[in-house]
Computed example of a mutant assay.
Amino acid sequence: MQSVVAWAFPTSAPGKERCCLVATQSGTPVGMIIAQFASRPPIYTTERMVEIDSAVVHPDFRRKGVFKGMLSLLEEKASFEGSRRFILSCITEMKMPSMPT
Rank of each mutant, 00 (worst) to 15 (best):
Q36K: 05
Q25V: 03
G15Y: 04
L74S: 06
K64F: 00
K95I: 03
V22C: 09
P97F: 06
A6M: 13
Q36P: 01
P100E: 12
E51A: 13
P41L: 15
A13N: 10
Y44I: 12
E47S: 14
D60L: 14
S98T: 05
S3N: 05
Q2M: 08
R18T: 06
P100D: 10
I33M: 07
M99P: 02
P59C: 02
V66H: 06
K77P: 05
G15D: 15
V5P: 00
F61S: 00
S72C: 12
V5Y: 01
P10V: 06
Q2N: 07
R84C: 09
A35T: 05
E93W: 06
V66M: 14
R62D: 05
I43L: 14
S98W: 01
S12H: 10
I87E: 15
A78G: 07
I34F: 01
K16D: 12
V56E: 13
G69S: 14
V5N: 05
I43V: 15
S3T: 04
K16I: 00
P97M: 09
L74N: 04
M70L: 12
C90A: 14
V4P: 04
G69K: 11
V56W: 13
E76R: 06
C90E: 00
M49K: 11
E17Q: 08
S72A: 14
P100A: 10
R40E: 15
E76K: 11
T101N: 02
S26I: 00
L88Q: 02
K16M: 15
V5S: 11
P41M: 13
V56R: 03
V30T: 04
S83L: 04
F80I: 15
Q2T: 10
C20D: 02
P42D: 13
